[in-house]
Each structure stands twice: as structure tokens, then as C-alpha cells.
Design a protein around this nucleic acid. Sequence first.
DNA 1: CGACGATACGGACCGCCGGTCCGCTTGGCA
DNA 2: TGCCAAGCGGACCGGCGGTCCGTATCGTCG
Lengths: 195, 195
Amino acid sequence: MPERRSRKDAVRNREAVLAAADALFSRRESPEDVTMADVAAAAGVGKGTLFRAFGDRAGLLRALYAARLASMREAVESGPPPLGPATPPRERVPALLDAVLCFKLDNRPLALALEGSGNGSPYRAEHYAWWHGLLRGVLEQIPGLAEPGFTAHALLAATRADLVEYLAGEEGLPREHLRAQVRGFVVRALPSASH
Amino acid sequence: MPERRSRKDAVRNREAVLAAADALFSRRESPEDVTMADVAAAAGVGKGTLFRAFGDRAGLLRALYAARLASMREAVESGPPPLGPATPPRERVPALLDAVLCFKLDNRPLALALEGSGNGSPYRAEHYAWWHGLLRGVLEQIPGLAEPGFTAHALLAATRADLVEYLAGEEGLPREHLRAQVRGFVVRALPSASH
DNA sequence: CGACGATACGGACCGCCGGTCCGCTTGGCA
DNA sequence: TGCCAAGCGGACCGGCGGTCCGTATCGTCG
């Protein structure tokens, strides 16, 4: 299995597309009016190249998302508390959800585009499975918490991109308020610490 | 303001479209492959008529949703416990969310289509505002519950159509299990009854 | 009952977008 | 240097939501 190498121009174009798409999704407020043709043009590349590199729109979105998520993924998997694995579960759960929330606040258009990508649900996406698996694992370590699987889904649902967008954008709720509310909700949903 | 009457053929066609759309969304599993042209054809009507009557796709979806929701709306606003207004809050909240869940289970494709209708978020929709306002009002009557507004959003998020679809469809979770899990989660998120 | 204006009908038509195709270019190896 | 697989790019396609306008129908008024 010699693992076929890509040609240099191919990887360069891939980078260019990623960078261009990143910029476009950050600039434009609504993700829907970033078209594939736009991205290709902004990257100085033909549409064929774009689709060859990423398969389809969802593929591009996923690649972008994964790239931006990388640093957080590392912080969660091997970083220091309160995000890293050494944190006690009861403390780590709110930290994880806060991280998700902040990520979505910082990448609003992209998160919106990915979750809203018409096709299937966001739930089939690989990154969602990762979050869910992780959260579920942590929840399982909290004694007395029934149904960690569903609880993980429900907690993650409280940070859905469109809800975040609505509260932060439409309603103008400031970032710190939103963070506090999410934290409050999450803590409340965990069984009380005593006994 | 004599409130201009519609012509008879207009209302008849409106009914026909509603019925046809209803049938199509129930039959087809994915809401995306019910096109406007399909609906028009199934109703024996031209596309122009369809768009004249409902404005756009979202308008049709909303009208359908509202029609199916009517009976539940009444049950909630003036029906007997546990859904009606006479129910004690701590008991009514899980009942309300169970009702939402069941509704979405019973109207999967439609709910999916409405929440996923690309444009804006589901959060601008009138029916969501209604649910949220109602739930918030009930939550406010529970002593010791901070942030009823956000809590209402978060609880409703746990019954999002695409999550329901994923759990019930993809994962094959039986209806009663799902109901039990939602109920468990909701109850857990409420402050404990004692003191 | 006949006729006339307002209202609604319907399907050809439009613009747009995601995605494909294929003749041409270019990188990389012998 | 020559060869060819890998890659490029933009014309092209199918299908969708939505519009337009000539035609048919309703319902009212003389």
C-alpha cells in the first residue's frame, strides 16, 4: 500500500480553497450565499478542482470545520484541566459544553452552514459522533446519572448552532450571558453532588 | 375593512393543495424530494396557483404544520390535565415536552421539512415562539428555577426534529424508550421538588 | 339572463446552484 | 528530454424555487 502521494499543485490548490472558503464564510453573514462558484473564484481555481478536492459542498464544510476544530480537539484529548481528561467529570462536563458554545460563537457562519447542510441531519457527521461519544463517556463516570447517551444528545442540543445564532444574533444576548445560561442549565441537568 | 372574500375555487384549490401536500409529506420519507411541482401536480393544480395561495415553500410548510398542530394547541390551551392549564407546573412541563415529542414522531417528515427549511432558523417561526412562550410561562411558576427563558429553549432543543429522526430512525430507538428518556431528562433538569 | 370587471388559473419560462465532463496542461519520473 | 498519469478549469447539465401573463372562471349588477 504505497499510499499514493498527491501532486504538489493539488495540495497547493487544496490549501488555497480552504483559505478562501474560510475567509468567505467569515465575511459573509449568511452561509447560504457563499456558493461553490464563489469559493472557486476566490481561490483562483476552477469548479472542477474544487469538487475534485472535496467531493461536494458538505465535504468542503466538513474539511473546514475539522481544520478549525483541531486545536480544540487536542485541548480536549490531552490538554490541561478543565478541558483535558484529568478533570473530574462533574467539572469537565460544563467545561466541554462551554467549549462547544464558544467554538460556535467564534465560527457562527461555518457552524450554521454545517448543521444546516440540508442533506442528512448533523447527527450523521463524524465530528458530532466524536463530541457525543466523548461527552457520553464523561457522563458515564458521574454516579447516579441515568441514560448518559440521551443526556449527551440533549446537552449538545442546547448549543445547536441555529439556537446560538438566534440568541446571540437576533436577540442580541451578550456572549457572557449566554455562556452563563448554558453553564447553569448543564449544571442543573447533572444529579446534585450531595450524597 | 370588509376583509375581502376569497373566491370559491380559490379556497377549494387551497384545500386540495393542503391535502395533497399532507399526503405527499406523509408518504415520502425525505422531505427534500417533495418538490413544489410534485405538490401542484398531486393537487391537480398549476404551480402558479400553489404559489399564489402560500407565497413560497416555507409558507406551505407553515400552513400544513399549523393545521396539524391545531388540535394539540387546543388541548394545551384549554384541555384537561395533564396538558391543560389546570395542571401543576412541575407535572405540566414533562407533559408538554412529551406532547411535542409525540407530535414530531407522528409528523416526522413535515417537522423535519419545517425545521430544516434552509432560509432562517426554526426559531423565527411563529409556532416556535408559541411553544417557547408557553413553556417559559409554565417554568416561571416553578420556584427556584433560574433562567426560564433559556431553559425553555434548551428543553425544546432536546426534541428537535432531526434529533428525533436520528434516534427513532437511524438508531431504531422505539417510541416508548425515547419518550421515557426525554421525560427523564426533563424531570432531571427541573429543580428537585423537596424544600 | 347577459355581459363585464375582477379574480384566479396554469404551465411555459427564468435565474441560480450544485455537480459533471472532457479536451487541454502540467508535474514528475526514467 | 520525452512520456503519460494526474490534475485543471470552465462550459455544460438537470432540477429546483419562484415569476409572468394570456386565458378561463366567478360572481355581481343592470
